[in-house]
Design a protein around this nucleic acid. Structure first.
Length: 154
DNA sequence: GCCAACGTTGGC
DNA sequence: GCCAACGTTGGC
């Protein structure tokens, strides 16, 4: 597939871990409430794109596995659900504001590639996730960075 | 639990 | 449209 992109998505393992994804096989990536992250999902994520799964607020934080985009962006229904913690009163059916994609489980790495390891790895110095103050929960990953990490996973 | 970094909100 | 105040993220 031409122009395949690579991504990194963050999740707190207490909320939804790679093991949860493995169990469910696929999930809708709801609850993203950041415009930049939403735009990446809405405008650039394509079916088949590979996604590094990152555990934030974990011990240690790091990349724990691989997922794949299985459905392009569609409205995030949790924004319309008053009972959801992701409810956004500004969202309507016509203007849902927030979008989500579906992702499916690919693999769980045999060991976590910790943030600390990523920071120490040559070639990854420019990777977004190792930059200070980088909070985006959905971010693009350069192909070269992706390949380095994939090799490290073995 | 702390707090730096960052995004969003809202008064002006 | 500026920017201070506030809320959230996420490493430590």
């Amino acid at each position: 597939m031409a122009n395949k992109k690579y991504w990194l998505i963050k999740s707190e393992p207490d909320a939804y871990s790679i093991d949860d994804l493995k169990r469910d096989k696929k999930t809708c990536w709801d609850g993203v409430r950041n415009y930049q992250a939403r735009n990446f999902m809405r405008d650039e994520m394509k079916v088949g794109d590979l996604v590094l799964y990152y555990h934030s607020n974990a011990k240690p934080p790091g990349v724990v596995g691989l997922a794949r985009v299985s459905r392009t962006a569609y409205p995030d229904h949790t924004a319309l659900d008053k009972k959801s913690k992701y409810y956004d009163p500004r969202a309507t059916k016509d203007k849902p504001i927030w979008m989500m994609v579906d992702i499916e489980f690919v693999e769980r790495f045999p060991q976590v590639i910790s943030l600390d390891t990523l920071k120490q790895t040559k070639g990854l110095e420019k990777m977004r996730v190792v930059q200070r103050g980088q909070r985006l929960s959905v971010q693009p990953v350069e192909a070269a960075h992706f390949q380095v990490i994939r090799k490290m996973a073995k």
